[in-house]
Amino acid sequence: MKPAPFEYVIAESWDAAAALLAEHGDDAVILAGGQSLVPVMNFRLAQPAVLVDVNPVADGAYLRIDADRLRVGALTRHVRFEAPQVGGPLGALFPRVARHIAHLPIRMRGTFGGSLAHADPASEWCTLARTFDAVMVARSVRGDRRIDASDYFQAALVNDLADDEVLREIELPALGPDWACGFAEFNRRAGDFAIVQSVAAFELHDGRIVDARIGIGGAAEVPWRADTAEAVLAGAIPSASLFEEAGAAAAESVGELMTDRQASAEMRRDLVRVMVSRALEDALAAGVER
């Protein structure tokens, strides 16, 4: 339960981190909050030769609205999302999602970018990023590279970042006031990993849904958008039966679901149906409150 020896280096800027990654290649790993990486190192499932600590990077933690984009600094700690940080429907969704992430001391250390870089199938932020087609901005000595969420998540714990790239910012759309966003998650104990979770959002015009996004995490190796379920919602008037129909469509929207000791694939499929429906109900309730 002690990590293997490694060299510890501090990066005080993203460029410095990128230079260190260029120098050490796949021997080096970025240390952010460490709430997922360090357990894996303690188990010796990861044995990096060099640990690049980016916690001292200046201006690495922020949420800012920039025209139609919401920019999240990779080092923004989970806990910051528990209190309203930015306006709009997405800003209102953040606290409802953040409190599902592990426990408070973990949320005070763990970072938004770290979750995206770790790419755990049960990560709330990964599901949210996929739902809203976030853009991951990765820095290397070659400059910035922008990666679409649809290309970013490749398998459980595997993403599109190259060995010499460090994730420095995540871009989300700054959703307009006609959007309503919701979240639902199932697990067996508060603070535990999600077995299935769903982020759902729709845009209402004159009482009708004109655009919708449904993302699902925890169920398969990577989060996905259930476009067939989104199609069910398009043009419709929100109702409980509509949401159930969308949930059923979402449950059939992907082939391979995970089986582990927490839940079988069959159970996960049923949970997708229910979580999507509940996330839509949560969105509707949030929209009505505003």
Binding site: G34, V38, P105, M108, R109
Partner: peptide
């Protein structure tokens, strides 16, 4: 509060 097993 910090988990002292997860901070070097």
């Amino acid at each position: 509060p910090v988990r002292a097993c997860l901070m070097f």
